[in-house]
């Protein structure tokens, strides 16, 4: 980890009423690397991600983007910095086609009307950059796609506008074996393009297959931040369940 992280959290906190969900969490993600965020249910993974997405701002602590302190108070702030979130329940509109979904909320326009041709070309380029070749027509409705294809579109949606940080929430949770392999390969390519990928996962097999770094949340504190190459599955399980601890290796 020679390069400085593209996005860094320092001692962020978040409480809901009397419940402290994040108790001063440090976290970082680096360009070109896949950082897995693991932890048991209720550890604070979703809260951490919602803060990064600007959906639910943190109460305290610092967010550094490219070394500069920034505020993420609104999804617009996140989008401005190129932070894209691919949600678990695939935030796609079934009744729209692939191009329309990829550009939803940020359509290319001229004189107030859509540049459909330009969007098609850019969508194709985005899918191309992820080496996606299984899409028959960019103009087919998302309702006609399989689960893996939908996940692909959702990820491509995140990169079509040159994202710098892509957050994937359980990208393989609903997929079969072959499709999981496809999506993991996609995640790897995303990082190879210089994107900082943050992947939430319950599946340690996925984590060890694709991630470079792993960060473990346990009851609102970061119990481990370590390179995947320097740890074992048993250790990570230990950090997740709280039976094993280590001082942060930042």
């Amino acid at each position: 980890m020679a390069h400085p992280p593209i996005i860094e959290l320092r001692a962020v906190t978040k409480s809901f009423g009397p419940v402290d969900v994040l108790k001063g969490v440090d976290f970082a993600a680096h360009a070109g690397r896949v950082t897995a965020l693991v932890g048991d249910n209720g550890a604070g993974k979703s809260t951490l991600i919602k803060g990064l997405a600007g959906v639910q701002p943190y109460d305290g602590g610092d967010v550094l983007f490219g070394g500069e302190p920034v505020r993420l108070d609104h999804p617009r702030d996140a989008a401005k910095h190129g932070i894209e979130v691919v949600y678990q329940d695939l935030a796609l509109c079934d009744n729209l086609d692939i191009v329309q979904n990829m550009f939803l909320g940020r359509e290319e326009r001229r004189l107030g009307t859509f540049e459909e041709g330009q969007m098609e070309v850019e969508a194709a380029a985005a899918l191309q950059s992820l080496s996606v070749k299984t899409v028959k027509s960019l103009r087919q409705k998302v309702s006609s796609l399989s689960g893996g294809q939908r996940q692909t579109v959702a990820i491509a949606r995140a990169v079509v506008k040159q994202a710098s940080v892509v957050i994937l929430d359980e990208p393989t949770a609903a997929l079969g074996v072959a499709q999981t392999a496809q999506v993991l390969a996609l995640v790897r390519r995303l990082a190879d393009h210089g994107v900082a990928v943050i992947m939430i996962s319950h599946n340690l097999q996925d984590v060890f297959e694709v991630a470079d770094d792993v960060s473990v949340l346990y009851l609102g504190t970061m119990t481990a931040r370590i390179e995947v190459a320097n740890t074992t599955r048993e250790d990570v399980v230990g950090y997740i369940t709280g039976t094993k601890t280590m001082e942060a290796v930042a």
């Binding site: 009744n95 329309q100 909320g105 326009r109």
Partner: peptide, 21 residues
Amino acid sequence: TRYGRYLYAIGGNREAARRAG
């Protein structure tokens, strides 16, 4: 126009539309 597209998007998946900003 965006307005028209958003009508369709919200009719298709309101939450997705909201997350798309």
